[in-house]
């Protein structure tokens, strides 16, 4: 068990360190990269809990897709973080209030019942977290799950509808037309007799 504890404390420290660095890093690109590091470390912690599906999905979705787009934007925008920090002291009380209420809520949700939560038992190598998750999601929680899917679709449609704008003056290529071009429309083959020099 000792080795596992070392790994646990190592990655917990990494999560905390990366989390602090996300806020304090001067360079926004560094901040985004530290966020990636935090995702990786928490995924390692989930692996320790035998939740391999969640761990890998965290890397796949957040690191592989969300943070790539995030970095994309951060790199292009050239944000000046010093200017963003100017009102730090002024907003500090509000921030502290939000932090305290979040901590209070979390203790209310997970606190009393789980204060002496027993250490979860190892399930052994045959345990398949992915299959278990799938079984529960598609049987017991199938309606909430489908509902979440519908909400996501609505959000996607709304996001696309918000960015959709028609620009009538823009010339566009129509790839279907381009692809369906026939030789006869473009090429004229001219037959000529060979001329004497």
């Amino acid at each position: 068990m000792a080795f596992e504890q070392i790994i646990f404390y190592f990655f917990s420290a990494m999560v905390l360190l990366a989390g602090v660095m996300v806020i304090t890093a001067r360079n926004p690109v560094y901040a985004a990269l530290f966020l990636v590091m935090a995702f990786f470390s928490s995924s390692a912690l989930w692996l320790l809990l035998e939740a391999e599906f969640l761990a890998i999905t965290l890397v796949l979705v957040y690191v592989g897709a969300v943070m790539v787009l995030f970095l994309f934007v951060v790199m292009m925008l050239d944000i000046n973080l010093v200017a963003l920090r100017e009102g730090f002291m002024r907003y500090l009380p509000v921030g502290a209030l939000v932090a305290i209420s979040v901590i209070a809520m979390m203790t209310m949700v997970v606190g009393p019942e789980f204060a002496d939560f027993p250490i979860p038992e190892r399930k052994g190598p045959e345990y398949n977290n992915t299959a278990e998750l799938g079984r529960i999601l598609y049987t017991e929680y199938v309606y909430p799950f489908e509902l979440a899917a519908v909400i996501l679709v609505v959000a996607i449609v709304a996001a696309i509808a918000l960015t959709l704008r028609r620009r009538p003056m823009v010339r566009k290529q129509n790839p279907d037309q381009q692809v369906s071009v026939r030789k006869e429309e473009r090429v004229r083959i001219v037959k000529m007799d060979v001329e004497k020099r």
Partner: peptide, 9 residues
């Protein structure tokens, strides 16, 4: 178990 996901990630 989740080898395919691991590779994709």
């Amino acid at each position: 178990n989740a080898a395919l996901l691991y590779v994709l990630a």
